[in-house]
Design a protein around this nucleic acid. Structure first.
Length: 340
DNA sequence: AAGGCCTCCAACCGCTCAGCC
DNA sequence: TGGCTGAGCGGTTGGAGGCCT
């Protein structure tokens, strides 16, 4: 037995809204509001529509200050950044873009932005390069030398990639566990590096496939801490997840570490922050940490705890370790760690 | 001109969650 | 405490319109 329908399907109109229906709905809501009850609204407003349909029409099309038309580059960047951080939480993303609806952003992502990024993430031989660059400039995925040129991207909406020389340390030592304070000076004279973390999500995928969704799972205990992380064939157990720095330094096994200078991220609250960014490159991909707006951290924490049964994975293929957030730090210092 | 294919987006569907009784 | 209901959300669909052959 399925769920009871929310309305009498036989007596409601479906399909595109007519201008007359729009006018009726708009007039009613502007005069009366929805009365906190969308289900009852259509009857009161004289509409042969499902309440859910009325709600959607109002929220996505009729309500004041809705912005239609082209997305700006800045909006693109915000969407990229948020998607990389929180996945397909369209309503949260929409909240950061005044005038845009979740449906709008979702459609825009699915029809345009995703394809734009897919263009960027083509395998090296198929990428569109700037005229001055040739394919041999591009980096191997898993370099084994002590310096290499990595194909990182200046702008997530650009069709061009911008190789930058990245220095790195491998098998980093205990002293490097002090992530926030121990930035080495190996990188000098770098231009602003990677802008969109999502690019890092795609870049290392072996089969040149975009990865949406993840096999990853994470059991979450009552305090929200994550004690077991599974991804792919690899499973990690950690008894002391409070020591995230240690975990990140040692828990993923052998990996390469490099730094992006002037990493640009965190559009939360409308503010873009540039900082140095450690990235750990591993056979399975990358992990990194990013600073986050405190309110958003709380929001994501709540979302996470509300689905605490077993899953802590995100549709963008990353897991977030929320207990990595050091509550003793100021809002500006809140850090979220990612891996996959 | 016509048919096929593709793109885009409005709208629908089904699920989860919170609030209420 | 458990069931019911409505709101909200994200995934998916269907059709209109544009483009290509």
């Amino acid at each position: 037995m399925g769920r009871a329908p929310c309305c009498d399907k036989a007596n409601v109109k479906k399909g595109p809204w007519s201008p007359e229906e729009d006018a009726k709905l708009k007039e009613y809501i502007e005069k009366q509001g929805n009365g906190g009850n969308w289900i009852a609204l259509p009857q009161k407003a004289g509409l042969k529509r499902c309440g859910k349909s009325c709600r959607l029409r109002w929220l996505n099309y009729l309500r004041p200050n809705i912005k239609h038309g082209e997305f700006t580059d800045e909006e693109d960047r915000i969407i990229c950044t948020l998607f990389a951080n929180i996945g397909s939480r369209w309503s949260i993303i929409a909240a950061q873009l005044p005038g845009r609806t979740d449906n709008d952003i979702k459609n825009y992502w699915n029809t345009k932005l995703k394809k734009k990024l897919m263009g960027i993430m083509l395998p090296p031989s198929q990428r569109k390069l700037p005229p001055s660059q040739t394919s041999h400039d591009q980096a191997p995925l898993y370099p084994n030398s002590h310096s290499f040129t990595s194909s990182l991207y200046k702008d997530c909406t650009s069709n061009y990639y911008s190789p930058e020389t990245i220095s790195f340390t491998d098998n980093y030592s205990d002293t490097e566990a002090s992530l926030a304070t121990n930035f080495p000076t190996v990188i000098q004279n770098q231009e602003a590096g990677l802008v969109c973390p999502m690019q890092m999500q795609y870049y290392p995928m072996k089969d040149n496939l975009l990865k949406f969704g993840s096999e990853a799972s994470c059991s979450t205990s009552s305090d929200g801490s994550c004690s077991q992380i599974t991804y792919g064939k690899e499973m990690k157990q950690d008894q002391n997840m409070g020591n995230l720095q240690n975990y990140i330094s040692n828990g993923f096994g052998e990996s390469l570490r490099f730094m992006l200078n002037n990493y640009e991220s965190s559009n939360f609250g409308g503010e873009t922050v540039k900082f140095n960014q450690w990235v750990d490159e591993k056979p399975n991909g990358f992990s990194w940490e990013t600073k986050m707006d405190c309110d958003l951290v709380e929001e994501v924490k709540q979302l996470n705890s509300s689905t605490s049964t077993s899953s802590n994975n995100y549709s963008n293929g990353f897991n977030c370790l929320f207990n990595s957030i050091d509550e003793s730090k100021t809002q500006q210092e809140k850090v979220m760690y990612y891996y996959y």
